[in-house]
Simulated scan of single mutants.
Amino acid sequence: MKYRHLRNATALLTLGEHRLLVDPMLADAGALPGFKLFGAGRRRNPLVPLPAGAPAWLDAATGVLVTHEHPDHLDAAALRWIRARGLPVWSSHVDAASLRRKGLAVREVHDGSLGLDVEVVPARHGHGWFAWLMGPVSGYYLAHPDEPSVYLTSDAVLADAVLEAVDRLQPDVVVAPAGAADMGVGGRILFSVDELVALVRRAPGRVVLNHLEALDHCPTTRADLRERLRAEGLQGKVDIPEDGEELQFTRPDDHARPHPRVGPGPRPGLQKWLTARMAAT
């Protein structure tokens, strides 16, 4: 398995024959408004451009995987890019109808999708009432028979569903957002640094941390995060890639894997209708 980190949550994930572009935010630096609603530090996003090799890596994609419709995971530039290439877009049932209305060739993620063992793991994008306003988010567990299994938490805080998925599915690699995003109201909407430490301790294998140094409402830096993980004695379990860096993982052994939970999963409702109004078009 290869994980090419591009920027923020955008990555090229290679699993077997699949090269999935995950959560593409392709806008030029400064093309989007600031996400911090209150307090100091509001700047236009993204804060940094895509790395120099991005065009070639994007051209290698065979499909797109979307965890939710926030513009830092699927922006207008990405929509134009996907439509121009006619790539299949994989999403949860919650997002599928909204994405189809945007002219995308959507395929719903479920067990067996892409020829993989798959589970959709709902995530909470924040705490309390603000998490509801942030809308539904889907994490994905993906297991190729010849590759390490990977759990993409997507934008999340350390809720019971995340910990239960880690304990039950025992993913070889966990990919989680580390920006500790705070819009200036409603508290943190991503893992705090303390929550990341707890997640890394709980994870059975490697942890890849992304969502860093690309958005105005994400104050955590790579340097500060590395220092905290060193202090906790956890640096050996964690990768914090630079933009453009590729990580490679091999399956640690051929032990039997737990089978993903099969079920209808969340369905779109009022929460999705509200957040879809604010999504990119």
Rank of each mutant, 00 (worst) to 15 (best):
M1T: 07
Y3K: 01
H5Q: 00
L6W: 07
N8Y: 11
A11H: 13
L13Y: 09
E17N: 12
H18R: 11
R19L: 01
P24E: 11
L26P: 08
G30Y: 01
L32H: 01
P33H: 11
A40H: 07
A40Q: 09
G41N: 01
R43Y: 00
L47R: 02
V48Y: 00
L50T: 01
P51Y: 07
P55Y: 10
A56K: 13
A60F: 02
A60E: 15
T62G: 05
G63L: 09
L65N: 09
H68K: 01
H70R: 14
P71Y: 05
D72C: 14
A78M: 08
I82E: 00
R83V: 06
A84L: 02
A84T: 08
A84G: 09
L87F: 13
V89M: 09
S91K: 04
D95T: 04
A97I: 06
R101H: 12
R101D: 05
K102M: 13
K102C: 12
V109W: 03
G112T: 10
L116F: 14
V118Q: 00
E119C: 04
A123F: 07
A123Y: 07
H125A: 09
H127G: 04
L133V: 13
G135K: 11
G135R: 07
G135L: 10
V137P: 03
Y141N: 06
P148I: 03
P148K: 00
T153A: 15
V157W: 00
D160H: 12
A165T: 03
A165P: 03
A165E: 12
V166Y: 03
D167F: 03
L169D: 03
P171Q: 06
P171D: 06
V173K: 00
V173D: 04
P177A: 12
D182K: 00
V185T: 10
V185K: 13
L190F: 05
F191G: 01
V193A: 12
D194H: 15
D194N: 15
L199S: 07
L199D: 04
L199Q: 05
V200C: 05
H211R: 10
H211Q: 05
A214N: 06
T220F: 02
R222H: 01
L225V: 07
R226I: 03
R228P: 00
A231T: 11
G233I: 13
G233W: 14
Q235D: 15
Q235M: 14
D239S: 15
P241I: 14
E242Y: 12
E242D: 14
D243G: 11
D243E: 07
E245M: 10
E246W: 12
F249A: 02
T250I: 01
T250N: 04
R261V: 15
G263K: 05
G263N: 03
P264D: 13
G265W: 05
P266Q: 13
P266T: 07
R267V: 13
T275P: 04
T281N: 09
